[in-house]
Amino acid sequence: MPQTQDTDENVEPVDGVAPMTADMHLSVVERTAPVIDGPIATDRRSIWPLSPGRMAAVVAALITAAICGPPAADPTTGVNGADLGVLLSLAVFVAAFLIPIPKKDDQS
């Protein structure tokens, strides 16, 4: 059975609260830097989203997967070298995107 909520009948009135105008709610912040600041805004745009070496790795992985895919999918041959080729092409494809690119000014 739900119970009724208790209400406090002895509420103290609040005195001294002055009404605020609309401009009192806003804080004045002066922007000193552009909104987008960093390598994204300063890099040249290119038609290729990856560097040439990474793009070559992606293309090689796709070609290897296309060549090794049908023999690897054939259930009559069992496990063969084409399965290894597909796994290697998958590894090359993932590595092309996940291996971090060293910074140009980083000497380590």
Score class of each variant (00 low, 15 high):
47 I>R: 12
26 L>C: 01
72 A>F: 08
77 T>W: 02
77 T>F: 03
45 R>N: 07
11 V>E: 03
84 L>T: 14
55 M>R: 11
67 I>F: 10
84 L>Q: 09
94 V>T: 08
102 P>Q: 07
42 T>C: 02
44 R>E: 08
48 W>G: 01
25 H>T: 14
73 A>D: 02
97 F>G: 12
96 A>R: 00
5 Q>N: 08
60 A>K: 03
94 V>P: 01
93 F>E: 05
69 G>V: 08
76 T>S: 14
41 A>S: 15
95 A>D: 02
48 W>L: 06
9 E>V: 11
56 A>N: 13
69 G>I: 06
86 V>Q: 09
27 S>W: 11
11 V>N: 04
10 N>A: 01
86 V>G: 03
33 A>G: 02
86 V>K: 11
27 S>G: 03
14 V>E: 04
7 T>K: 13
82 A>D: 15
48 W>R: 05
25 H>C: 04
72 A>G: 13
94 V>C: 07
101 I>K: 15
107 Q>K: 15
78 G>H: 10
9 E>C: 08
70 P>S: 01
68 C>M: 12
1 M>I: 13
78 G>K: 06
9 E>W: 09
65 A>C: 07
51 S>T: 15
79 V>Q: 09
75 P>K: 12
53 G>L: 12
99 I>L: 15
75 P>R: 15
16 G>Q: 09
108 S>L: 11
90 L>H: 04
102 P>G: 06
38 G>R: 06
55 M>C: 04
23 D>Y: 05
49 P>T: 11
44 R>V: 01
101 I>R: 15
104 K>Y: 03
65 A>W: 09
41 A>D: 11
96 A>T: 04
36 I>N: 07
67 I>S: 03
71 P>E: 08
32 T>A: 07
104 K>Q: 10
16 G>F: 03
28 V>H: 03
44 R>I: 02
35 V>D: 10
76 T>D: 14
60 A>W: 05
38 G>E: 05
31 R>P: 06
66 A>Q: 13
34 P>W: 00
48 W>Y: 04
36 I>C: 03
17 V>I: 14
79 V>W: 14
62 L>C: 11
102 P>F: 02
94 V>D: 01
28 V>A: 02
72 A>K: 07
103 K>L: 00
106 D>Q: 12
74 D>Q: 12
63 I>V: 15
52 P>W: 10
77 T>A: 06
29 V>G: 04
58 V>P: 01
59 V>S: 01
26 L>P: 00
9 E>A: 08
65 A>Y: 07
59 V>G: 00
85 G>L: 13
72 A>W: 08
61 A>P: 08
80 N>T: 15
95 A>S: 15
7 T>Q: 11
1 M>G: 09
103 K>V: 00
40 I>A: 14
37 D>S: 12
94 V>S: 07
87 L>V: 10
19 P>A: 11
105 D>N: 09
93 F>D: 00
55 M>S: 13
74 D>E: 10
92 V>Y: 00
78 G>R: 07
24 M>H: 14
98 L>I: 12
53 G>Q: 13
57 A>Q: 14
25 H>D: 04
